[in-house]
Amino acid sequence: MQELVAFDWWLLFVRWCHIASGVMWIGHLWYFNFTQTPTMPKIPTELRPGVAKYILPEALFWFRWGAMFTIIFGLILAWMNGYLWSAIKIGIGDHSTHNTAIGIGMWLGTIMWFNVWFIIWPNQKKNIGITPASPDEIKVAARTAGLASRVNTMLSIPMLYCMAGVHFY
């Protein structure tokens, strides 16, 4: 019972939630980029709506809310660890490689979170028919969302280096 109220237990709990949400988010991001997008052109035309109408909306739900909970738990975790402000200013003036590393990772993650909620999701809403759009607008929206998703895949590599590697700094 003592452990349940101990600060360290809550630290572990928030860290666990942060990692689980992050797996949900980056797992879907990599699914889109490594599996779905390269496979779509190979799927017979009559079967494509199965992906676009059923799998994509569901995957986008877990993807964007995974991103939201990752950043929420991440910020709480940094605050509980006492380095939130130092990480926001990427450790400048604090002579801490640890806070610089986690700070750069946090900023990369924040850019990715912004891409998800303010570029990918609004454009995908046109693509899956939630926001009304003309065929030309849908084409532009799909291209924009696709590129932002690729940017996030690129950024996920250094972001994960910072997150996983921070304990070595």
Partner: peptide
Amino acid sequence: MKNPLDSLGQTIVLGFVLTVVVVLLIHAIA
């Protein structure tokens, strides 16, 4: 010129290049 992000392979390579930049940045700042 083709956008390198249209290729998954080039996206991954760019991700690793960016990681090297981040490592150098960590040591330069701290």
